[in-house]
Simulated scan of single mutants.
Amino acid sequence: MALFFVVDPPLTPALRDGLLRTWTAASNAGGAIGFVPPVTEDDVEPTLDLQLAAVARGRMRLLVGFDGDEVRAAGFVERNTHRLMQHWVWAKTVMVHPEAQGRGAGFALMLAIAGLARSMPGTEAIRLSCRGGLGLEDFYARCGYKEVGRVPGAIRVGPGDDRDDITMLLTLG
C-alpha cells in the first residue's frame, strides 16, 4: 500500500467522514490519540470538529495520507503562537488506520509531517507529545526524534493506570 499525502486538502464532508473513521478505528486498535477504547464516532466527532475548525481558521495545518479515496493516515501541525517559541511547531493527533499499520505508513506520515514543517517559514523543530507504556517513543526515535522530557503518571487512561507524558523533538536540518 503506497499512500499519497495531501497538505491542507479541501475540508469536504467526505474528508471529515474519512478522518472520523480513521481516528475512531485507530483509537479502538489501541492508538494513543486522545481516547481510550472502546470509542465511537460520536465520542471522537467533537474533538475532530474542533481541530478541523482550527484548520479552517488557518491555526493548524492538516496532512492526510490517502490510499485511493480512503483516508489511511493523518496528522495536524500547529505553529506555536508564543512569541518566543515561534521557531518550532507541534505535531498533533498523528494517526494511522489499522489497515495501514505495519506497512511503513506511520514512518511515511512522519516524513511527510517533517516536510510540511520544513515548508513553514522559520520552523526549526517539531515537538510532539506521546503516551508512555506503548513504545511510541521508540517509534518516534526511529523517525529521528529525541526524548526531551517526561512527566511521570501525567496521563490517566483508567483507574490505577497512569502513563508518562513524553515530549519528543525533531530538529530540522
Rank of each mutant, 00 (worst) to 15 (best):
M60L: 15
E137H: 06
S129E: 15
E137Y: 02
E137W: 01
T40V: 12
R61V: 08
Q51Y: 11
A32R: 15
T93A: 07
I33F: 09
V96M: 04
L52W: 01
A56Q: 12
L134C: 07
V39D: 06
G106L: 02
A108P: 04
G58R: 14
A112K: 08
I113Q: 02
D49A: 14
R57S: 13
S119G: 15
E99C: 10
W88E: 04
T40E: 14
A53E: 08
A32I: 08
V77P: 02
A54S: 11
K92I: 11
V39C: 09
L62Q: 04
V89E: 02
F66V: 07
V39T: 09
I126K: 04
V55C: 12
D42E: 15
L128Q: 02
L116P: 03
A100M: 10
G30D: 09
T81S: 14
M120T: 13
G68D: 04
E41A: 14
G31K: 01
M110R: 03
A108W: 03
E99I: 09
P98D: 07
G31L: 06
V36I: 10
V71M: 04
Q51H: 14
A112C: 06
D49W: 02
A114L: 00
W88V: 10
A105Y: 03
R83K: 12
F35N: 03
V64S: 00
L109R: 01
L48P: 03
P46M: 08
L111H: 13
V89D: 03
E99L: 12
A117M: 08
G122T: 12
A74M: 13
A91V: 13
V55M: 08
